[in-house]
Nucleic acid binder design. Structure first.
Lengths: 117, 117
DNA sequence: CGGCATCCGCCAGGATACTG
DNA sequence: CAGTATCCTGGCGGATGCCG
């Protein structure tokens, strides 16, 4: 989304700010996987986020980079190699996503238990 | 969004699960304000979330209720009174949103500082 | 006061094909 | 391998008006 400096006429809410930066269908998962693996190539991300198309992956990565959450390192080789890592700002976001993960995991466990008679 | 039992053919990712439940433009803020004020009426929420239309507020509250994150208590009086509170599951989500708030707040502070020469 | 009913625009996201 | 380039659709969210 690449937050453009405040269009908003309304009181800035930090929660809203955070959601606008990591909202969208894939951003959370990309950041989380980058945290787990430290560094991931484009193709590795595609294999990790099964339900993403190349277009959406490129687009989302570009937005995250513009927002300063991830770093893109391109090695000019043949075949090409591009690696993505978290920036310091991105790393600061990990505890929050970690909490979301824990919560989601717990809910999924409860759901599983409920479906086992 | 009211997660319908897994359509997803793909490996369930807890982060994805969490984002599908609290994604959308307003859900995070609604949960956060409910946490701060404990209990809020419909009209109070409208005044708190300035950029929301009645339709979106009703719709979002209904989704959150179906997802079991908030509780709706309707008092049959004239004039009507409806109060919203967090459910236990919703309360478990607060630490995560709190982390997001802290992160967003910090980034906003840094932005403010950068714009002050 | 606390909604619901309609209608609608827009853009996030999807499908498919191609390229340096 | 790591992306672009197009074209297209669905549904999120907006605007307006009415109701118990």
């Amino acid at each position: 989304m690449a937050i453009e400096k405040n269009k908003e006429k309304f009181a800035i809410c930090a929660v809203d700010y955070a959601f606008r930066r990591i909202g969208g269908k894939y951003k959370g998962r990309i950041l989380w996987h980058l945290h787990i693996h430290q560094v991931l190539r484009y193709g590795e991300l595609r294999k990790t986020i099964l339900d993403i198309t190349p277009k959406m992956l490129s687009q989302t990565l570009k937005e995250l980079e513009l927002d300063g959450l991830i770093h893109r390192e391109s090695y000019h080789e043949v075949p090409p190699r591009v690696e993505y890592t978290l920036t310091p700002v991105g790393i600061e976001l990990i505890p929050a996503i970690g909490q979301l993960f824990k919560w989601g995991f717990k809910q999924l466990e409860k759901g599983k238990a409920a479906n086992m008679p």
